[in-house]
Design a protein around this nucleic acid. Sequence first.
DNA 1: CCGTTATATAACATATAGATTGTATAACAG
DNA 2: CTGTTATACAATCTATATGTTATATAACGG
Lengths: 115, 115
Amino acid sequence: MIPTLDATFAALADPTRRALLARLAREEATVMELAQPFSMSQPAISRHLKVLEEAGLILRRVDGTRRPCRLAPGGVAAIDQWLDMLRQALARNYDRLDQVLAEMTPTTNPKRKSP
Amino acid sequence: MIPTLDATFAALADPTRRALLARLAREEATVMELAQPFSMSQPAISRHLKVLEEAGLILRRVDGTRRPCRLAPGGVAAIDQWLDMLRQALARNYDRLDQVLAEMTPTTNPKRKSP
DNA sequence: CCGTTATATAACATATAGATTGTATAACAG
DNA sequence: CTGTTATACAATCTATATGTTATATAACGG
């Protein structure tokens, strides 16, 4: 199942889930290891992990009775791709601002600082 | 008011709001101009724009009775900064994978393709 | 002034998210 | 087998998000 941008952004909107990702940025961890620092029930963490998985942000392997999680590249890549549109638009705006500022020092004294 | 990561990611999680941003990536636009392509009431668009503003994703100026909106750099910047943690961790994982693969072609024939 | 246009706010309905407790499943340890 | 450990699932509660309609505000055009 392909994760949607909706799912990926929504997954990142929750502070608990961002904390889980920050933990996983250090190293792979099991559900119990991930749950331990939080004052929250284990099922709650399990659901957060499911959300992260469906968002393409983590992967889980099976190791006996454990399900170690690690970061997945897909989610971040999808987001980055979408954000590029905004980044480019913002860069264009910035360039335009540069141009406007340049034109504000008109024909008179083209290379002078304001005072 | 400083936008939180919660607010910014949540703002991006909605497809209507992403469409509004995509529109604004082209050019500044008023509320009515933004609302026009959607089969949605004007108040609904107004609220979406408020969410985007509070997320640091857009800015609004006052022009008579109009409130033209344009993209703001803050939101994307905040997100990028946070995502860097994940990007770096993913890059480290990738390097580690490279290393593992390299070690899987041991002392015998170090520079040969698989055939 | 007055009607119109642009936008925001209020009140409300409904759906969804996130948490909890209780329980099911399934591997492991003895 | 049996008890324990690791994890997932179900039922349930509550809060919040998102949409609607109705209405307020405020600038504009004549």
